[in-house]
Design a protein around this nucleic acid. Structure first.
Lengths: 225, 225
DNA sequence: CTATAATTTAAAAAAATTTCACACATGGTA
DNA sequence: TACCATGTGTGAAATTTTTTTAAATTATAG
């Protein structure tokens, strides 16, 4: 599951929470922008399209619910509300208005991350390439199938793992060590054998690899188109 | 889909909450059954297949989290946890274990209804998938029948349980262990046999499975499109 | 051109899966 | 109840797939 980085806007007037959340989300591989008020947030969403907004309800000036009301119609960005404890009625309002989730304070940042991932999974179907075609070769990671000039070859699990990675970063050299870690194998010669087998399946002329090439001293690359 | 009435199990040791929730859900057109303990709930889910479970975490005897752990593997019923306020870590645990949502106490029954509807919307559709067709194969879990190129094969209970799960998450790999838990069998070779028999029924060429594939070292996947 | 290092390949070994044949249970029927 | 027919689970053998090893080949630097 390679490298889609979600951009998240964190809106809270409390500096402490803002920086805590920011740091935590950063560590979890999100790209984070913050705003200290609803007004400020409104500016930012005009400029950047975020993948998700984490929004405190209680803020001086416009509060979180008002922010949602202002923007929900035009915006399809999912929102997670942060509510002070016991604000049951506000939670209800928030959900009715169109928040996608809420998190009662105090919360465990871990939970925030869980919730965010949960929602992102639903909304952005992390679009990974799973079916690619080049020349007369088609690789279908769903059906675990390679079709080369009409002939079918099955992809096994090991091969799937390697192809998944390589397909999503074509042109990147993968060291044997790296590949070994992916498939939990540490004998380097064994990696070679796996590559050879893969070549038989994806290369038109396996002895002269065009797509899955060796980088001597460094590893292997997949070159598509 | 006209008038599907969801059957909900409410599990809480507190009489007050139980009856409050029951009444409120009843008023909102749900069919409600209650249980005053995890043990009691375990009995009931053996007998009735609920559409959703509302589960208090804090209970004497087994608590809610334990209940989920006991049943999650075999059960695909969604669970909403009721947590006392501030139980941040338990919420996290609950979500990690596989609860679908939680509601911090004190809560507004209105919110509970919102959350329930929300989850049911997501799950009901999926649960409905009981008849599927791909290529020249039709699987009908209602009639317990597979029709492959005109020929009929009966589905037995074991197979039904497995297919039910696999059909609803095509592309997901099911380990033998997982399948074993579903059908209460712990000999791994026996699982293989069951798969072989299933293949005879659903595969056009059982020796070269296209739909029900082996993921060596990991288990089996169903790929339908 | 040669020596050396790195990669490829083929074949053996190991591991995992499939299949077979039988045993046991279940339910129907005489 | 005894008998069969059918379906399901099990262990073991057969098969298939994957990993390892080692030999052969190819590339590179001097």
């Amino acid at each position: 599951m390679d490298k889609f980085i979600a951009h998240i806007l964190v809106v809270d007037d409390d500096d402490g929470i803002r920086s805590l959340v920011k740091r935590y989300l950063n560590d979890n591989n999100f790209l984070v922008t913050t705003a200290d008020s609803a007004e400020n947030a409104s500016e930012k969403i005009k400029i950047v399209k975020f993948d998700l907004i984490v929004l405190d309800i209680m803020m001086p000036g416009k509060n979180g619910l008002e922010f949602i009301q202002d923007h929900k119609k035009k915006m399809d960005t999912p929102v997670i509300l942060l509510t002070a404890k016991g604000e049951a009625s506000e939670r209800v309002q928030g959900l009715e208005i169109g928040a996608d989730d809420y998190l009662p304070k105090p919360f465990d940042p871990k939970e925030l991350v869980l919730r965010i991932k949960n929602i992102l999974d639903k909304t952005i179907k992390i679009k990974q390439k799973r079916i690619i075609e080049f020349e007369s070769v088609k690789i279908d990671l769903n059906k675990l199938l390679i079709i080369k000039s009409g002939k079918e070859f099955k992809i096994n699990n090991t091969e799937k793992i390697i192809l998944e990675k390589m397909i999503n970063t074509p042109g990147k050299t993968f060291s044997r060590e790296h590949i070994g870690q992916l498939i939990e194998l540490d004998k380097e010669r064994s990696i070679d054998v796996i590559i050879t087998r893969l070549r038989k399946k994806i290369e038109i002329d396996p002895k002269n690899p065009k797509f899955l090439q060796t980088i001597r001293g460094a590893g292997y690359v997949l070159w598509i188109e």
